[in-house]
Design a protein around this nucleic acid. Structure first.
Length: 564
RNA sequence: CGGGGAGUGGCGCAGUCUGGUAGCGCACCCGGCUGGGGGCCGGGCGGUCGCAGGUUCAAAUCCUGUCUCCCCGACCA
């Protein structure tokens, strides 16, 4: 039974001054969350109801694919993180601490180490496989920059699941089960979402996807086209034509004093930006200086370049490339003393490009890749709005990452000793997958996607309550008595109702109801008894409906079931 | 980590430049009116001005240091 009189629901007319994101403003204004420190948030009772509903949906779908819920600790002995190598590799994002005896500990940012420890302890035989284990547990990450309310925090609850299989084929099965579960979860929570291809990182696994909820506050960009969806970090673009001048017999120098930008050179020579090749010298771990060439109107995608190189890199400084290549602003591939990578977006054999001349104030035109310089092909350009996928134009939208699924392979099982004996008695490493969902981000994304001028509009599956009953008139009046009885009616019909029985004016109650975002609002006032029907408002779209007074509980339940 | 901004009752802000008894709106408390879209009248409570040090007869205001928070970027297992 929830009555708003006495309920801990501190709604505010004004948003916090420093809030930018819609979800940040509205979750605070609606009394659902409160900030404790940078990246640290409490969930107040109404907000926690939303969180719990999301968690329950996730739990049901995880159980449906055979997931087994457990609980692992946040405080981890550093030993396991040292064994996996992450104690050293992760950096400042990992909270490290000591206990009273000086033993090193970490606060878990995720639970691969500990779950793999248990796999190592328990799994003996191929007969013990496969397994799906998951939990909802607090994650601690010392984020360099928490932002946007609960969108990026230093402490948050994550559902993380782990699959254990005997081989890659088994992993594919477990991965596929998670796609089924996740698709259902994101449908059920009522979000608009995409499953996109994502970066598999340096481990070079065979698959990774992210679930993205598009909205302006999103920190990621997704490339979307009919039949295509990918994080821009990994999105591939089809070649785009560009008009190139016919190539002369060899490169021709051209004076370009002070022109160190693509725009300046292109406009000086009267050619499109795409007729230039721009040069990106990088220092690659283990390889040294490498020169990436890509079209003048394209941009480097760091993630794709890193994956193409198979190693970390950083932009080279001028003192590193001046001697082997040329001066900053005028560097090019012709005569460069460095391996050259040519982006796939550069067409070869269709004419001559303009490049830096590797001398001050000089560019070359008529440069033909292959004839004038050797190269290795790579895909390292960022997809742009206007590129195509399958012939369809790509649009790039910001989105919140609300879930991810990832094939780990044997990245953790090998260092942590999670092995099983196969039929021939041979010990083999377990193949693992890892699968995350952030319930807080689902809540924030839902706010972002469906809010209007009046406030939040929750999907009914995750709303803090199903229906809000607004009782008008003074306490003790007939209409209040009617509202009291209707409240019992709603509960009897199986609705999770909240009753605004506060001694407040109608305007305040209506405004709060719409701010909090309960999907269906019923108003009982002086008019109700005479009209013989109850006024209902559907929150999404603020559409007015009427519910007959007789059998109101069932009628309201039926209306509620028709809502998004 | 780089750049920008802000700390003054619960929330939103003014006051700081030019030092002189800390203010406004909302919220809250009391009384009354009102009762279908944040209503009205009257009376109240509440703040060592982030913290520390300094200058001064006198500091929210000037100086030094420091902490915290926000925004943009970098970063993001």
């Amino acid at each position: 039974m929830t009555r708003l009189s006495g309920y801990f629901l501190p709604t505010e007319k004004q948003a916090p001054a420093d809030a930018e994101a819609i979800s940040h403003k509205l979750l605070v204004r609606a009394g659902m969350v409160r900030q404790v420190g940078s990246g640290l948030w409490s969930w107040l009772p109404a907000g926690w109801r939303v969180h719990r509903k999301i968690v329950q949906i996730v739990r049901e779908e995880m159980d449906a694919i055979g997931g087994q819920e457990l609980l692992m600790p946040v405080l981890n002995p550093a030993e396991w993180w040292q064994k996996s190598g992450r104690y050293e590799s992760v950096g400042a994002e990992l909270f490290r601490l000591q206990d009273r005896r000086g033993a090193p500990l970490v606060l878990a940012m995720t639970h691969e180490e500990i779950v793999t420890l248990h796999a190592a302890q328990v799994i003996r035989s191929y007969r013990d496989l496969p397994q799906i284990l998951y939990h909802f547990q607090t994650k601690e990450r010392d984020e360099p920059r928490p932002r946007a309310g609960v969108l990026r925090t230093r402490e948050f609850i994550m559902k993380d699941a782990y699959t254990f299989d005997r081989d890659a084929e088994g992993l594919d099965v477990g991965y596929g089960k998670h796609i089924v579960a996740y698709d259902r979860i994101f449908d059920r929570v009522g979000l608009e979402w995409y499953r996109v291809e994502s970066d598999v990182g340096m481990m070079g696994g065979t698959g990774a996807h992210e679930y993205m909820a598009p909205c302006p506050a999103g920190e990621n960009d997704v490339a979307l086209a009919p039949g295509y969806a990918a994080n821009v970090e990994v999105a591939r673009a089809e070649p785009q034509p560009v008009e190139l001048p016919a190539a002369p017999a060899g490169p021709e120098p051209v004076e370009t004093p002070g022109m160190i930008t693509v725009a300046a050179v292109a406009s000086h020579l009267g050619v499109p930006h795409g007729a230039l090749l721009k040069a990106f010298p990088v220092m690659v771990d283990g390889r040294g200086l490498v020169l990436l060439m890509l079209r003048g109107d394209h941009r480097v995608n760091d993630v794709k370049l890193r994956n193409a190189l198979g190693a970390e890199f950083r932009p080279a400084q001028e003192e590193e490339f001046l001697r082997p290549i040329g001066p900053a602003g005028y560097i090019g591939p012709v005569g460069a003393d460095a391996p050259i990578l040519l982006d796939e977006g550069v067409a070869v054999g269709e004419g001559g490009y303009v490049t830096g001349g590797n001398r001050p104030d000089v560019h070359l035109r008529g440069v033909v890749p292959g004839r004038d310089f050797g190269f290795e092909r790579v895909d390292a350009r960022r997809v742009e709005e206007g590129d195509t996928a399958g012939g369809h134009p790509i649009r790039v939208e910001p989105a919140i990452e609300v879930g991810n699924i990832f094939k780990l392979g044997t990245r953790y099982s090998e260092p942590l000793g999670a092995t099983y004996l196969d039929e021939s008695g041979k010990a083999r490493p377990v193949w693992m997958g890892s699968y995350g969902i952030g319930p807080a981000r689902i809540a924030a994304a839902a706010v972002e996607q469906f809010a209007d001028e009046q406030g939040i509009s929750w999907p009914r599956s995750i709303a803090p309550w199903d229906v809000e009953l607004v009782g008008l008139g003074k306490p003790g009046t007939d209409e209040r008595g009617l509202a009291d009885r209707l409240y019992e009616d709603l509960r009897a019909a199986g609705l999770d109702a909240v009753y605004d029985d506060r001694d407040a004016g109608p305007g305040e109650k209506f405004a709060d109801a719409e701010l909090v975002g309960v999907p269906l609002r019923l108003t009982v006032g002086r008019r109700t008894a005479t009209a013989g029907e109850i006024e209902a408002q559907v929150r999404r779209g603020r559409e007015q409906r009427a519910v007959p007074l007789e059998g109101a509980g069932e009628a309201a339940a039926s209306l509620w079931r028709s809502l998004p």
